[in-house]
Design a protein around this nucleic acid. Structure first.
Length: 566
RNA sequence: UGUCCCGUGGUGUAAUUGGCAACACGUCUGAUUCUGGAUCAGAAAAGUCUAGGUUCGAGCCCUAGCGGGACAACCA
């Protein structure tokens, strides 16, 4: 019954899928689907871009189309090749490919220039000699129409000559621009004779000094879509008001039934972080974080270093969906996505973050043995491993209390716990130093309770992780917390998000102890430190000097109970 | 005193296009467990921003409000 219901239940589609399917059914563009992902190479990609990437490439995949990678490199003053390579690496890492279709808006500078000439010849573009401030003033306001530029009536010949001369380097930057002649009274500010070409002498990272004039975004994007045969140009909501202009240029360009259309969706916002490239750049420049790939950054390289997998990011994007509602998504959903992924895949290991020495007084002095531990209880195929056990061990400081509260299931004087995979031990006594800090715990073990042994089924409340003191490896562990203490740090007018920085966003722990099997782990290897969370080997890690990043903690209901009782 | 976009449990989304408001996360129970994790079973939680209208029937269509956002870069 339930199964048939599931089958009958039509899979729900978001509004972009619905639009695309409608276009297909109406036979638009011959039923062809072609999208593009168009980053500007002026910074690193962040998880907001991942949302766009999943859509652009995802729609192409789903509807048997193609997705181009196109660098929107129309502003040489802000762009650099450094970013081109990083962007490509991140897209590939996420699991998408543009095959051989790697394009640049700068590839179209010639065609764009020719198109501008066509517009001039049709009387639809003119050279304006006024300064930026004057043009801006004449634009009017959102409630008042603009005034016409005194240069608006120039002859076609004069416009043509001036535009060519602009590109020959005869005029200073800022002295002249080319504008489309549309409507200075339009309620849409973008239609009030938008600037389409400006003079720039900064060399371009790909075209060098070939060009002295560069097209503006609005004069490059739709046209590039058109040149590439893009059918669905998906972008974020803030470009909604640009759409009439996009369409206006396409109208001038069209010479067949083919036409690209722009569809806008909501940008990704995450709680407790900032997402704009500018603000992220400030964090890097100010040294608030260690770089673009700092594990606290929402950049893809940062998330990668933190231990996030491409699968978890794609899953998160799938969970939040695409709408036109401006929402702020909870980071805890992103954390859910990585936990869900790692739970199935990450090998379980023992790591002790804040070690406390335990001595098993009735265990033979020099003896050592190996116990067998399951690598992943969620997946038998991961097998088992042998972990050394001995008389002296380390457990977590948190796992012992001299005066335990009610319902504390761990070690305390007279209380019993299981050391996972090994024996049940009872705390008999402990030692304190002159500061009153507990330095050593003395336990006895019950040899019959070894896992798999005669008394193994004896029930105790708690199970602890541990490492053997003589065998374990030292490690540094970096714990991360949210970068900001405010849910929406950039959502307050006139307040700099940096006012809300979390001073405790990074905690570096040294002298942590991990089991010996971790000795040859390499960068980005991922593990579950049992009872603690998911951890990932950092790029800084070296044999003999291991460094781990905590990706995310395990859900900790004990911590919650504790907090509530406080 | 403009134009455009958007208002559905705490959060994010869905509702077969006008037919009993569903799913996920989170929360709370209980079972189970050699991870206080995971897993399994169950529960609470919105009557769809407001007021009208059309209709047998409105989250969906219409009107008017209210609230939020985008737009006046030689940025993208």
């Amino acid at each position: 019954m339930k199964e048939s219901e599931d089958i009958l239940k039509t899979e729900s589609q978001h509004f972009i899928e619905q639009t695309i399917e409608k276009d297909i059914s109406e036979g638009k563009n011959g039923g062809r689907i072609h999208t593009r992902f168009p980053p500007e190479p002026n910074g690193y990609l962040h998880i907001g871009h991942a949302k766009a990437i999943c859509l652009d490439f995802g729609m192409a995949q789903k509807y048997g189309g193609m997705c181009n990678l196109r660098f929107d490199d129309t502003n040489p003053t802000k762009e650099d090749v450094e970013y081109v390579d990083a962007i490509k690496e991140d897209i590939n890492w996420l699991g998408f490919t543009w095959e051989e279709r790697e394009y640049y808006a700068s590839d179209y500078f010639g065609r764009l220039f020719d198109f501008a000439v066509v517009l001039i010849k049709r009387g639809l573009a003119y050279v304006d000699d006024q300064r930026a401030e004057t043009i801006s003033e004449q634009k009017g306001t959102t409630t008042q129409p603009g005034v016409l530029s005194p240069y608006r009536g120039r002859s076609i010949e004069e416009n043509l000559t001036l535009f060519y001369r602009m590109n020959e380097g005869e005029f200073a930057e800022g002295s002249r621009v080319l504008r489309a002649k549309i409507d200075m009274a339009s309620p849409n500010m973008h239609m009030r004779d938008p600037i389409i070409y400006r003079i720039l002498y900064t060399p371009h990272h790909r075209t060098g000094t070939t060009w002295k004039v560069y097209p503006m975004y609005d004069f490059a994007h739709g046209q590039s879509d058109y040149f590439e045969g893009i059918t669905h140009s998906l972008c974020t909501l803030e470009f909604e008001v640009h759409r009439p202009l996009y369409d206006w240029f396409v109208d001038q360009l069209m010479d067949s039934d083919y036409r690209p259309r722009q569809i806008e969706f909501n940008r990704l916002n995450l709680t407790y972080t900032v997402m704009s490239k500018r603000k992220l750049l400030e964090l890097v420049k100010d040294g608030v974080v260690r770089g673009w790939d700092d594990p606290r950054m929402p950049t893809l390289c940062g998330l990668r270093r933190r231990g996030y997998t491409p699968e978890s990011i794609r899953r998160f994007v799938e969970l939040i969906g695409y709408t036109k509602v401006e929402a702020i998504n909870d980071v805890s959903l992103l954390e859910y996505a990585i936990r869900e992924d790692m739970n199935k895949r990450a090998p379980r290991v023992f790591g002790v973050l804040n070690p406390l020495k335990v001595i098993i007084t009735n265990y033979p002095e020099e003896a050592t043995e190996e116990v067998e531990l399951v690598n992943n209880p969620e997946d038998e195929t991961h097998g088992t491993r042998m972990v050394p056990f001995g008389r002296e061990l380390y457990i977590e400081q948190e796992d012992f209390m001299e005066n335990p509260p009610h319902k504390f299931f761990r070690l305390a004087p007279g209380q019993e716990v299981r050391l996972k995979g090994a024996y049940i031990v009872r705390c008999e006594s402990f030692k304190k130093n002159e500061n009153g800090e507990i330095t050593e715990i003395y336990c006895t073990y019950d040899p019959e309770t070894r896992s798999g042994g005669a008394q193994a089924d004896r029930k105790v409340k708690g199970t602890l992780h541990w490492v053997s003191a003589v065998h374990c490896l030292d490690a540094e562990v970096r714990l991360y917390d949210r970068l900001f203490i405010d849910e929406d740090p950039s959502g307050h007018k006139d307040i700099d998000p940096r006012e809300y920085l979390n001073p405790g966003s990074l905690t570096v722990l040294t002298g942590c102890k991990v089991e010996p099997s971790l000795g040859n782990a390499s960068a980005l290897d991922k593990f579950q430190f049992q009872r603690l969370g998911y951890f990932c080997v950092d790029y800084d890690s070296r044999p003999g000097r291991l460094v781990f990043n905590r990706t995310v903690s395990l859900k900790d209901t004990w911590a919650k109970v504790n907090k509530e009782e406080k």
